[in-house]
Design a protein around this nucleic acid. Structure first.
Lengths: 134, 134
DNA sequence: ATCTCAGCGCATATACTCATCCATGGAGTC
DNA sequence: GACTCCATGGATGAGTATATGCGCTGAGAT
């Protein structure tokens, strides 16, 4: 349903959101989230280049969530790792499947696709922090 | 969302459903569905072992849908290639995410998951043939 | 200045899906 | 029985996602 790297990214951002303003080292985040340390840094680097997190080198360095990222949707994060989803056309590539001549799966699939996109775009990183604070 | 092999399998069975009782060779099916011939045969062999199709060797041989398969759901086919889905637990593996303490994504995800499963289990192979006959 | 901590970048290893190739053997034709 | 058609099965290769390793660089501590 969603790639492993994407799930990692969400978990990382969720964890950072629980510690606003704090600089957390990669090692700390890895221990807290259970994500392989080496791989985690790669993901964090992408998140940094995209502007979702900021980093600090050297002694006492680490990663921290940029305040604006609290308003970023899950969809935006996923897109960074999986590219834009072009869910055009029939998933099963059945013959003559379009709006006018939908295949038996068409409307079912549209429903799934719709609720999926709603989920990804309506939930923001900021919301993830609430879960742990309660 | 779904694996390529699984999609192939659906297309193959859908094609066979359009030609009830006929023996179609692997080459024919490959040409009709656009699936790589070599790979297609592999998939058909799995479908045969599972009992969804029957095969005939030698001259004039090929594959045909077994009548009972018309009542088989998409979910059953997918499961053959991707194994049973154990969608237990939080997709993002966020902390403390269960029925009592759902994470912010939990209910959204449940909705998606639900409509997805409804789609897979409610649509049968027999339904796929209708699409092409119209 | 030197040392150490920790992010940064590149190369590499592993696993899995997808796809292809080739040898085998059964089934019908001649 | 010889030949052709075509499914069967094993081995192999390409591509991608995932994961690891190592050297480099920047920043503070001493």
């Amino acid at each position: 349903m969603i790639t492993q790297t994407g799930r990692y990214a969400i978990r990382i951002l969720g964890h950072l959101a629980e510690h606003p303003g704090e600089m957390l080292s990669g090692t700390e985040i890895a221990a807290a989230t259970g994500i392989p340390a080496n791989y985690l840094v790669k993901i964090l680097n992408q998140l940094r280049k995209r502007g979702f997190v900021e980093s600090q080198k050297g002694w006492g360095g680490g990663f921290a969530l940029r305040p604006e990222t609290l308003g970023v949707s899950i969809a935006d994060v996923i897109e960074l790792f999986e590219g834009p989803e072009d869910h055009t056309g029939c998933v099963f590539e059945l013959k003559e499947c379009d709006e006018e001549h939908p295949c038996p799966l068409h409307q079912h699939w549209e429903k799934v696709r719709s609720s999926y996109r709603v989920m990804l775009s309506s939930v923001k990183i900021g919301h993830l922090a609430k879960a742990a604070s309660t």
